[in-house]
């Protein structure tokens, strides 16, 4: 449940509402970047995504390694991705 999965910000949708579209493994969903409001990430930046929120900024190398690690978790990763696919936040 404490899984953080790396995603790349493809669009800052509403800066005032802290909403950004993030792609994880080809799936694009809206997440909240409000927890990073002190240093908001922009398009192309990598973030660690947890329950619909960007919880930390990470660099691309870290993103790649983390993604490999979580993909190897197999079922847990697929469940997390399926859940991510289901999200539609306000």
């Amino acid at each position: 449940m404490c899984l953080g999965i790396p995603g790349r910000i493809v669009e800052v949708v509403d800066a005032a509402e802290h909403l950004a579209k993030v792609e994880i493994d080809g799936v694009r969903r809206m997440i909240s970047v409000r927890l990073l409001q002190k240093d908001p990430p922009g398009e192309g930046d990598w973030v660690l995504v947890h329950v619909g929120f960007a919880m930390a900024r990470i660099d691309e190398e870290e993103a790649r390694l983390t993604l490999q690690a979580v993909e190897r978790l197999g079922e847990t990763y697929r469940d997390e991705l399926a859940a991510y696919d289901s999200t539609s936040i306000v």
Binding site: I31, S88, I89
Partner: peptide, 14 residues
């Protein structure tokens, strides 16, 4: 219902 994010729960309320 299971949700991915607490914001999804808020969405259901809205």
């Amino acid at each position: 219902r299971f949700v991915y994010s607490p914001l999804d729960a808020l969405r259901i309320a809205v």
